[in-house]
């Protein structure tokens, strides 16, 4: 598979240790204010769940899944919020923060003067983004169980799926970051991210869209992520979810490979 074919060439003995030292830097940098910011990151999907899932859900009532099951609107929206928060958590760390460290603080120029290589920085940053994101996801799944939006067993099964989603978006985010020219490009990223958030089968099933739009939506990564997690938390997973997993793994491998290569070209000129 793509992943197993590409990674051995990128990684050498000691890579894991060196990536871990990049992750460790971020843990050292944690200061009291960031803990609050992190708590906020967890709060965000929960607020959306209550506002849209419960508040707007009261206006909507039940909704029919593509497979035919009829579920409460909150049951439909909750896994989408989880996927979206795994995405935005991974992206905020790997776009805004990563870009700042690379271009603005020139942090990586210092790191690259050590034995650490570009792809190891990428992996270390990704691991960090995931540590953060996974805490959010686990907490959100617990809330879903508490609100009766999924069963404990399904929540357990959904957790690895959210990790995969986070890793895939993290790798994508870093690859995108290496192509940015300046802070003004973040306006474009924000709009793109928001468009994904609104139209990835998150708030209404993609089947509601006109055919062409629906195809377009179904190739975007967040649609795949929502489809995967919703399949698991509603207990309707099937062959479609296998496609989602392969799609996200490919995204992860491609993102990492592109990031490593582009960082090397930009920082090791």
């Amino acid at each position: 598979m793509v992943l197993t074919a590409m990674l051995p060439r990128l990684l050498t003995p000691g890579s894991a240790r060196r990536s871990a030292s990049v992750t460790a830097r971020n843990i050292t940098a944690l200061k009291p204010a960031y803990w609050l910011v992190m708590l906020g990151g967890f709060l965000e999907p929960v607020l959306y769940l209550f506002s849209i899932g419960v508040g707007v859900g009261a206006l909507i009532g039940d909704i029919t899944l593509p497979g035919g099951q009829v579920v409460d609107y909150a049951v439909f929206v909750a896994p989408a919020m989880l996927a979206a928060s795994a995405m935005s958590g991974a992206l905020s760390e790997t776009t805004f923060n990563f870009f700042g460290k690379m271009k603005y603080w020139r942090l990586y120029e210092g790191v690259l003067a050590t034995p650490v290589r570009p792809v190891e920085i990428a992996m270390g940053e990704l691991t960090w983004a995931m540590m953060r994101g996974n805490v959010y996801s686990a907490a959100f799944l617990a809330i879903m169980v508490a609100m009766g939006l999924t069963t404990p067993l399904r929540a357990l099964a959904a957790f690895p799926a959210t990790i995969l989603v986070g890793f895939a978006f993290g790798a994508l985010g870093m690859a995108v970051s290496t192509t940015l020219r300046g802070w003004q490009d973040f306006d474009v990223i924000n709009v793109g991210q928001f468009a994904l958030f609104l139209f990835s089968g998150t708030f209404v099933p993609a089947t509601a869209y006109p055919v062409v739009l629906r195809w377009l939506v179904e190739v975007t990564p967040l649609y795949r992520a929502v489809d995967l997690i919703r399949g698991v938390t509603t207990g309707t997973a099937g062959a479609g979810q296998a496609v989602d997993v392969v799609y996200l793994l490919a995204l992860l491998a491609a993102g990492l490979a592109i990031t490593g290569r582009r960082m090397e070209r930009q920082l090791c000129r």
């Binding site: 003004q184 306006d187 928001f194 468009a195 209404v204």
Partner: peptide, 26 residues
């Protein structure tokens, strides 16, 4: 230019996604 994106395109997307998309289910 950036602010046109955030103060025009974002609301437009919200009108489409929520007003029309979710609205169809209300």
């Amino acid at each position: 230019r950036g602010s046109v994106l955030s103060s025009l395109v974002l609301p437009l997307l919200t009108v489409l996604g929520f007003g029309l998309g979710v609205g169809a289910y209300v």
